[in-house]
């Protein structure tokens, strides 16, 4: 009989208190491949964003009169400020890309089907929350692009009637909208994200990993969830390395202090499809974005029954491809077109 090593004794003591062995449940081998790790890599991206965001929050002043200056000071006076800001921005882009790939993987493999419909809905809500975080982050820059994004936000809220009241500058006349959006960016939306994420991970744990279309689960060698987390951490390191390299090679700039009443910029790539819709159909075109989200939520209802493989889901896959082509097409159209005034 061998005596337990010191590390084993530490593990036993920690595990007795934190019940960490619950994370050692078995997962199939395919769960450790990149397509099935994209959700966990998104989580790693969020960790990077939270840490860099907390650091930036110490030096950012969410007041319209000084917000632009405070960003310039972060870039020029705060030690490491430019790099941290760069990592935050690039990690935000990379996280959204990974999340969209995760969504595509879940869609293509039909992983939203019974019994995972609720988790799909939570995932769609997470996508919306992440887009809202990206949007509010864009506004916090408080340059020309930011003020125009905010003007579009206020105008669309007007279309929503009383439901858009929160986005009105008059909602809280003595607190600037920028300050309230900052509050949303650093507390309200992260809180929503945390709640949704907890629900998402809980449901993943309860239902297990969605089945692989080609590989039967029984034929798979099994690993533990700890192994899955370790690989996700590896990809997280890669994401941080990429964000750092991009922050050094292409550091993000800061535009001139904004002036309202003019529209001469275009939004970040993520919102270009919505911008394209606005160019084609006016402000009401933004309902198209709402329609896409409603369609995403309705997918588990629309695609029920039939065989689980690709052959049994031809219509769903065709619909997904059509929406993807439309979204990409609108994005390319907006990217190529000249900025136009939608509001003035």
């Amino acid at each position: 009989m061998t005596l337990p090593s010191r590390w084993n004794r530490v593990w036993v003591a920690v595990d007795a208190r934190f019940v960490l062995h619950n994370f050692l449940y078995e997962v199939p081998a395919y769960a450790n491949t990149l397509p099935y790790l994209l959700g966990a890599v998104t989580l790693a991206g969020l960790v990077i964003l939270i840490i860099t965001g907390v650091l930036l929050g110490q030096f950012y002043a969410p007041d319209p009169s000084v917000a632009n200056v405070s960003i310039r000071l972060i870039m020029t006076q705060v030690a490491g400020g430019e790099v941290i800001r760069g990592i935050h921005l690039w990690a935000a882009h990379l996280t959204v890309v990974v999340l969209l790939l995760h969504l595509m993987r879940v869609y293509v493999t039909g992983a939203y089907r019974f019994p995972r419909e609720a988790n799909w809905a939570v995932g769609v809500a997470l996508l919306g929350t992440l887009l809202a975080l990206f949007f509010t982050g864009t506004v916090l820059r408080w340059d020309q692009e930011a003020i125009e994004a905010l003007a579009h936000n206020v105008a669309f809220a007007r279309l929503l009637g009383v439901f858009g009241g929160w986005f009105s500058p008059a909602f809280s006349s003595h607190v600037p909208l920028l300050t309230r959006l900052y509050m949303a960016h650093v507390s309200l939306l992260p809180l929503v994200l945390f709640i949704l994420l907890s629900g998402h991970l809980y449901l993943v744990r309860q239902h297990g990993f969605s089945p692989h279309l080609a590989r039967p689960e029984t034929a798979q060698p099994r690993y533990t969830f700890a192994h899955h987390l370790k690989r996700a951490a590896g990809y997280g390191c890669i994401m941080l390395g990429l964000a750092l390299a991009l922050a050094v090679i292409w550091p993000p700039g800061e535009g001139p202090a904004p002036v309202s009443g003019i529209e001469v910029t275009k939004p970040p790539w993520l919102f270009l499809p919505a911008y394209g819709l606005e160019t084609l159909f006016g402000l009401a075109g933004l309902w198209g974005t709402v329609a896409v989200f409603l369609w995403l939520l309705a997918i588990p209802i629309l695609d029920r029954g039939g065989a689980p493989g690709w052959r049994g889901r031809r219509r769903a896959l065709a619909a997904g491809a059509a929406v993807a082509i439309a979204v990409i097409g609108l994005g390319v159209y907006a990217w190529l077109s000249y900025p136009v005034a939608h509001l003035h």
């Binding site: 590896g234 997280g236 390191c237 941080l240 390395g241 390299a245 050094v248 090679i249 550091p251 800061e254």
Partner: peptide, 26 residues
């Protein structure tokens, strides 16, 4: 606008080495 460019300073190269190490570690 304030548009920084790749500085090419020793600090910038140290950061790039750090990025390469993170990629390798990952």
């Amino acid at each position: 606008p304030l548009q920084p460019r790749f500085a090419g300073t020793p600090t910038a190269y140290v950061l790039l080495v750090g990025a390469a190490l993170l990629l390798a570690a990952g």
